Amino acid sequence: MTVAVVTGAARGLGALMAGKLAERGIKVALLGLEPEELALVAEKCGDGAAWWTVDVTDDTALAAVAAEVKERYGRIDIVVANAGIATGGPVEFSDPATFNRVIQVNLMGSASTARAFLPALRESKGYFFQIASLAALCSAPMMAAYCASKAGVEAFAHSLRAEVAIHGVGVGVGYLSWTDTDMVRGADQDAALRDMRNGLPSPASKTYPLEPTVDRLVAGLLRRRPHVYGQWWLPAMKVARPVIPAVITRQSIKLLEGFEERWKAAGANTRLVGAGGAANVTKHEE
């Protein structure tokens, strides 16, 4: 029996990854903040799937859930650190609490997830799969919190891989471009952010369908690869990484002033985007 834990499993990327793993006979433990959504995903994942409501930034609660998952299944072989949120807008006008929350969930939440589940992964010589993003390779304006968090989780995963290799634990990083999820659709509700993104150099401006992206990620995950790409062209972005900041800066000089003014005129919305962001706000305010 193989057991996989997926954080941020209530919807979008995490939910579909859990479903694809379950299709391959893997027992899935679903972690997230939305109990009704988690229950629906667990039902679709079939017998053996179970879910826990937990905030990945709550180390005590996460450690307790890790113990419960281990007790239920007897082992944990795969952990997918997928939980993530996003906000948009210029740093100067950002809400400090929202900006910091993105860093806390995306980066610190991944570290907390690893800390909670590594003892079980050491026992099984398992695999920790960190969801990063094109944002780790290509930092865009008006996305500083998200880009910083995803660059952070990429570096975190590389450090973790070096630490745990001696114990037989593998660590992979998953990269994906803009993908059709609630988070991206939520960001696109802000016209200025949407148009700014569409102004990025191709192919980084396109939104990609979710299922093929997840199929690529799951295939690489099951092969325990150190780097997995949701779109075929993303490895080239790693090669071009040294020149990307200059390209993005030149593009921003041409376009950003108009986008910034439009964003402020529309109300300078600094919310967490998408339904997952709303769920995080609700949980954080409790």
Score class of each variant (00 low, 15 high):
residue 1 M to R: 13
residue 2 T to Q: 15
residue 2 T to V: 05
residue 2 T to S: 13
residue 4 A to I: 02
residue 4 A to V: 04
residue 5 V to A: 06
residue 10 A to V: 05
residue 11 R to E: 09
residue 12 G to H: 03
residue 19 G to R: 15
residue 20 K to W: 09
residue 26 I to F: 06
residue 27 K to G: 01
residue 33 L to M: 07
residue 35 P to K: 14
residue 41 V to E: 07
residue 43 E to A: 10
residue 45 C to P: 05
residue 53 T to F: 00
residue 59 D to A: 01
residue 62 L to W: 07
residue 66 A to M: 14
residue 67 A to F: 02
residue 67 A to W: 07
residue 69 V to D: 06
residue 71 E to Q: 15
residue 75 R to A: 10
residue 79 V to F: 09
residue 82 N to R: 08
residue 82 N to A: 05
residue 82 N to K: 05
residue 84 G to L: 02
residue 84 G to S: 10
residue 85 I to F: 00
residue 87 T to P: 04
residue 90 P to Y: 11
residue 91 V to P: 02
residue 92 E to T: 03
residue 93 F to A: 12
residue 94 S to I: 04
residue 95 D to W: 12
residue 102 V to A: 12
residue 104 Q to M: 08
residue 104 Q to I: 02
residue 106 N to I: 14
residue 107 L to T: 13
residue 107 L to Y: 03
residue 108 M to K: 06
residue 108 M to C: 06
residue 109 G to Q: 03
residue 111 A to K: 11
residue 115 R to Q: 08
residue 121 L to V: 00
residue 128 F to K: 06
residue 130 Q to A: 05
residue 133 S to Q: 03
residue 134 L to H: 11
residue 135 A to H: 11
residue 138 C to K: 12
residue 138 C to V: 07
residue 140 A to P: 00
residue 146 Y to E: 07
residue 147 C to I: 02
residue 148 A to S: 15
residue 150 K to Q: 15
residue 154 E to N: 09
residue 154 E to W: 08
residue 154 E to Q: 09
residue 154 E to D: 13
residue 155 A to L: 09
residue 156 F to M: 13
residue 162 A to S: 10
residue 165 A to I: 01
residue 171 V to Y: 13
residue 187 A to D: 09
residue 187 A to L: 11
residue 188 D to W: 01
residue 192 A to S: 15
residue 195 D to G: 11
residue 198 N to R: 15
residue 200 L to T: 13
residue 210 L to I: 11
residue 211 E to M: 03
residue 211 E to F: 00
residue 216 R to P: 01
residue 219 A to D: 06
residue 223 R to H: 01
residue 225 R to K: 15
residue 230 G to R: 15
residue 230 G to V: 13
residue 233 W to R: 10
residue 237 M to R: 05
residue 240 A to D: 04
residue 240 A to L: 15
residue 240 A to N: 05
residue 241 R to N: 08
residue 241 R to F: 01
residue 242 P to R: 07
residue 244 I to T: 14
residue 252 S to A: 15
residue 256 L to Y: 11
residue 259 F to I: 12
residue 265 A to Y: 06
residue 265 A to H: 05
residue 267 G to M: 12
residue 269 N to L: 11
residue 276 G to H: 10
residue 280 N to A: 14
residue 280 N to F: 14
residue 281 V to R: 07
residue 283 K to D: 03
